[in-house]
Design a binder for these strands. Structure first.
Length: 274
DNA sequence: CGTAGACCCTGCGCGC
DNA sequence: TGCGCGCAGGGTCTAC
């Protein structure tokens, strides 16, 4: 369950349910994620603590517990974090489960194992290597045309790859990079050196609005992450170009094409993106 | 230094 | 029906 909108909707949903609940037990069932789960640290920093609040940095979900520790979860490509009844059977790829007071558990399932789960003691979060090199958040007002233009100065390479560079701005994943470029009619292969100030501003606005629109849409189409089978997670938003190759561009009618950049698929309309 | 490509891993859908 | 292939929304590392 990757892109930022899913993580943000998940955060909002869990923020209504988890604060005040106590983590009765921490079960590491299968430690093999991108980095091995550390059962000892997870237990010592989380077990017996109450959950205080949920935050997000980039696509990392941050679950703060009393005493200042934080459980950090990244869902990678295929991770799902769901709140389920305690008596639901353990499923394949259930790597981590937090048994909560009451009768529920919060479980992390991740077949492809690109996800992460680790715990940090207080105050070390921004120093942690996972966060140290991250760029700005895309939803706040830090992201504007001047910032992107300054970051792109002296760089080459295509705009699509640049938008997905987490050292510049976090959270613009493969879907929303294509969607944002379609909104501003910029071809994904256009060099960052050939983008003017006004277009940088439109790009910044498009990146933010593409993400926030998806969050709004996801928040309405998906309002419950605690369904019985634990399959909630992805939500489908209306996409103009992503995955639409062969179909007609909703703006100009030309056929949407698919290309590969940096080993990722990009989708664009050859009629109205230049 | 920045950039391009390989790579990590499993599951699914498609074409044959 | 069965099988092999390509592909998947994440990030990181290495080689140039």
């Amino acid at each position: 369950m990757p892109e930022l909108p899913e993580v943000e909707v998940l955060r909002l949903s869990l923020a209504r349910r988890l604060p005040g609940r106590q983590i009765a037990r921490v079960d590491v069932r299968s430690p093999a994620l991108r980095e091995p789960l550390d059962r000892k640290v997870l237990r010592s920093l989380l077990a017996g603590r109450s959950i205080e609040r949920l935050r997000r940095r980039a696509k990392y979900l941050l679950i703060d517990v009393e005493g200042g520790s934080t459980l950090v979860i990244h869902l990678g490509m295929s991770g799902r974090l769901t709140l389920i009844d305690r008596d639901q059977p353990v499923v394949a790829h259930e790597h981590l489960a937090l048994q909560l007071d009451g009768d529920q558990r919060l479980r992390l399932v991740d077949p492809r194992r690109f996800g992460l789960a680790f715990a940090l003691p207080s105050a070390t979060l921004e120093d942690d290597r996972h966060f140290a090199h991250l760029g700005i958040e895309p939803l706040g007002d830090e992201l504007d045309g001047a910032y992107l233009r300054a970051q792109a100065r002296g760089r080459r390479g295509p705009i699509k790859t640049f938008l997905m560079d987490g050292g510049v701005v976090v959270g613009v994943g493969n879907i929303y990079a294509s969607e944002a470029l379609w909104r501003v009619r910029v071809h994904p292969r256009r060099s960052v050196a050939r983008i003017g100030a006004a277009t940088w501003q439109r790009l910044a606005d498009a990146a933010r609005s593409t993400l926030s629109d998806a969050i709004a849409e996801g928040g309405t189409t998906l309002n419950d992450f605690s369904d019985g089978d634990g399959n909630a997670g992805y939500f489908q938003v209306s996409l103009a170009v992503y995955g639409q190759d062969g179909k007609a561009c909703p703006r100009c009618g030309r056929t949407i094409r698919k290309i590969v950049q940096a080993n990722r698929s990009s989708f664009y309309c050859p009629g109205c993106q230049h």
